[in-house]
């Protein structure tokens, strides 16, 4: 029993070490790809970012709307429904924006990355590149990783903006909160530090979700079952990692 636990821990630490080395290799190859093969990265920003816009915007709008409804029902108990703007802005910028975006990103873009890379491996495309003297890590993995890292903060920003719009629509236009109070409260309470926290989180989550997706795809067992497992694992692991890291970062910032 104890021994099993030890083996599991040992296994986990080994994987973590390999993941770290893999991460460092990606980072080491990033600058040259970013500057010399920018076209590859742009294509992946489109794949991971632009194609995720719809799901991010729709989700953001409804999350914001729910914040408006919930905020109103709670805050009106204290006659503080004017603070609904602050309530929504804080929740979105610091928590929901980065976290929900990261979870959606893992589901939309992460799975696409993991399964695409896994299938490329299963159909010998990565071997073929290797045989054409092209390093697949540089040609395939780094652009996809960078595409995710670049897209994620922008998606989180879009999510927060649309969310705030949703909250405004519900709070001001539907429930009759004063529009001046809505914005003025946000302006006086929200500090730049809070915005930075949100940005910092979204960058970290972007790195983690992209890294795990690319890693799972690259290490997938090259069969139908293996690729499907890798895809699932990339979402599950990203979600867990994002939520744990969110706790740690929040604790650090307070």
């Amino acid at each position: 029993m104890l021994r099993d636990l030890w083996y599991a821990l040992d296994d986990f630490l080994r994987t973590l070490g390999q993941l770290l080395i893999f991460f460092l290799r990606l980072v080491a190859n990033s600058p040259s790809i970013l500057f010399r093969r920018a076209g590859l990265v742009v294509k992946q920003v489109y794949n991971a970012g632009a194609l995720s816009l719809v799901i991010i915007m729709v989700s953001g709008f409804f999350v914001g709307g729910v914040l408006g409804l919930q905020g109103f029902s709670i805050l009106s108990k204290f006659n503080a429904e004017d603070s609904i703007g602050t309530f929504a802005a804080f929740s979105l910028l610091k928590e929901l924006g980065p976290v929900v975006t990261a979870l959606l990103f893992a589901g939309r873009a992460g799975t696409a990355l993991a399964s695409e890379i896994g299938l490329m491996k299963a159909t010998d495309q990565l071997s073929a590149m290797e045989m054409m003297a092209t390093n697949p890590l540089r040609r395939v993995l780094v652009p996809r990783f960078l595409g995710g890292v670049i897209s994620m903060p922008m998606l989180a920003a879009v999510f927060s903006v649309i969310g705030l719009f949703g909250a405004h629509l519900v709070g001001v236009n539907l429930l009759g909160v004063d529009q001046g109070a809505f914005w003025q409260q946000i302006q006086t309470t929200l500090e730049l530090k809070d915005v930075y926290e949100g940005i910092f989180k979204s960058v970290v989550f972007g790195v983690v979700a992209s890294l795990l997706a690319v890693w799972e795809g690259y290490n997938a067992v090259p069969t139908a079952e293996g690729v499907s497992r890798a895809t699932t694992r990339s979402v599950v692991n990203s979600a867990i990692a994002v939520l744990i890291l969110d706790f740690i970062i929040t604790a650090r910032f307070i």
Partner: peptide, 25 residues
Amino acid sequence: MLFQNGALLTDISVFENVAFPLREH
């Protein structure tokens, strides 16, 4: 090298597949 199943890159056209080594190197 000619792979058993061809191993063409599925996200680019036939032309780009053949051009791939030239563009890379």
